[in-house]
Nucleic acid binder design. Structure first.
Length: 417
RNA sequence: GCGAGUGUAGCUCAAUGGUUAGAGCACUGGUCUGUGGCACCAGGGGCUGGGGGUUCAAUUCCCCUCACUCGCCCCA
């Protein structure tokens, strides 16, 4: 039996990883310019954290978690998302005492036992942020501006930002009642799934894609018409802020996030290019979560970006090519030049060389194949004359360099062109 | 969890119920013994995903299984 990667997990190979790296670099630098700091959270946690944080009736908790017992019999789960862990850490280390607002970002793998398909894996990568400690709409705007900046930076522009407000602990229970009353008369027209949601989480019916359900939800009372005064003002200020920053968005009153903890602002960035997996980033405000997990009442907002999905929208990028290839003929040349290659590499020059001991023709071929800009040729003749031949691979011009000064002259030459 | 499709060389794909399963690209070597891309020539590579069945004979037909892809669901 062949050993291979388990279902739904994937190697990201050279040629594919470059887009991921660029996304990560762009995110890091933009997040940090917004004053966010990285937090490295564990890949597994006690199961209860996710059950309570994400919501016991969500699909993630009900059927998608990688949960098992460790050797002590403790129930642990591979993290299906990052927010719960960040909040746990925030509470555990009392970060609320250190600054009025904690602005954190994280990146790394998440695990969900789902059926894999395009843009959906069982181990997938997210880059996420959380801002804990303020419920000001300005933070919602800032967070969305930051997300938008990252996507712009990496050239992912044909996407749509959808936002909605889900109400808070004041108006949401009222709305929920109104919604249930409305759906009650249409129960028979709803899909099986939604009939269950009617009991557990009626708002989820709003974003069901089933045709029958859509017909019913089209005329359903909108959450936006049932916001309390505070939520209404908050939502309006978020929209105003986005307009002021000229960040395009559409209000989607049927947007309901799949995790229980969201309140007020909820948003999604979607694309039409990835089939059924149209969400490339999503998030929202979760003002009740910190308290729910045992911390002081603390508002918060965050989002997560789907790394693989965004990478699929980015242009494929080349793996870095060598600056220079050392074509060395004979053991003596290898012996003499090895320290030079190490020194140059220490200065950040990408140096490649031949490891097979082949002839010059073969080494030139390898240099060409690797895409080196220059090839440095050193054989017996050069050693005797104290020279090295530097060949520009693009225009075939060659110049002689003094062997003893290579370490000084080469970086200079490579920088010039 | 449900439905559909596809599994043949490293990659993209042919082929046929019947001799030794082919091509292009890639790879290795040569033409060209110290100068790359081009061209020509040669070569290495395959339990045709795995198992079972039908058959004189299966890569081909049937069943099971595994994997991948796409959709449903859900989500990033």
């Amino acid at each position: 039996m062949k050993i291979q990667a388990i279902r739904g997990v994937k190697d990201i190979l050279p040629g594919e990883i470059e887009a991921v790296q660029r996304l990560e670099q762009a995110a890091r630098s933009i997040f940090e310019s917004f004053g966010f700091s990285e937090i490295r959270i564990p890949i597994f946690e006690v199961t209860e954290l996710f059950a309570r944080g994400i919501g016991a009736t969500t699909d993630i908790v009900e059927k998608e978690m990688y949960t098992f017992e460790d050797r002590d019999g403790k129930k642990i789960t591979l993290r299906p998302e990052g927010t719960a862990s960040v909040v746990r850490s925030y509470i555990e280390h009392q970060l609320y005492l250190k600054a009025p607002v904690a602005k954190l970002y994280y990146l790394g793998p998440m695990f969900r036992h789902e059926r894999p398909q395009a843009g959906r894996f069982r181990q997938f990568y997210q880059i996420g942020i959380e801002a804990l400690g303020t419920d000001r709409p300005a933070m919602d705007v800032e967070v969305l501006a930051m997300l938008s900046a990252v996507l712009n930076q990496i050239g992912v522009t044909e996407v749509q930002l959808e936002i909605n407000s889900l109400g808070d602990s004041v108006c949401r229970p009222e709305y929920r009642k109104t919604l249930k009353a409305y759906f009650k008369t249409y129960l028979s027209q709803l899909c099986e799934n939604c009939r269950r949601r009617y009991e557990t989480n009626p708002m989820r019916i709003l974003d069901c894609k089933n045709e029958g359900c859509r017909a019913v939800t089209a005329k359903a009372p909108s959450p936006l018409d049932h916001l309390c005064a505070d939520c209404l003002v908050h939502f309006q200020q978020v929209k105003d802020g986005l307009n002021q920053l000229k960040i395009p968005f559409v209000v989607n009153e049927h947007l309901v996030r799949g995790l229980d903890y969201y309140m007020r602002t909820a948003f999604e960035v979607t694309t039409t290019k990835l089939g059924a997996q149209n969400a490339i980033a999503a998030g929202g405000r979760y003002d009740g979560l910190v308290k729910e997990l045992g911390g002081p009442p603390t508002p918060g907002i965050g989002f997560a970006m789907g790394v693989e999905r965004i990478a699929l929208l980015m242009e494929r990028m080349e793996t870095p090519k060598p600056d220079i290839f050392f074509a060395l003929l004979g053991e003596e040349a290898v012996r003499r030049m090895l320290p030079v290659t190490i020194q140059l590499r220490g200065e950040g020059v990408r140096v490649e060389m031949d490891y097979s001991g082949g002839g010059l023709k073969k080494q030139m071929g390898l240099s060409d194949k690797l895409g080196a800009r220059y090839t440095l040729i050193i054989g017996e003749n050069e050693l005797k004359a104290g020279k090295a031949m530097l060949r520009n691979m693009a225009d075939k011009s060659q110049t002689e360099l003094s062997l003893s000064e290579l370490a000084q002259t080469l970086p200079e030459r490579l920088r010039k062109t």
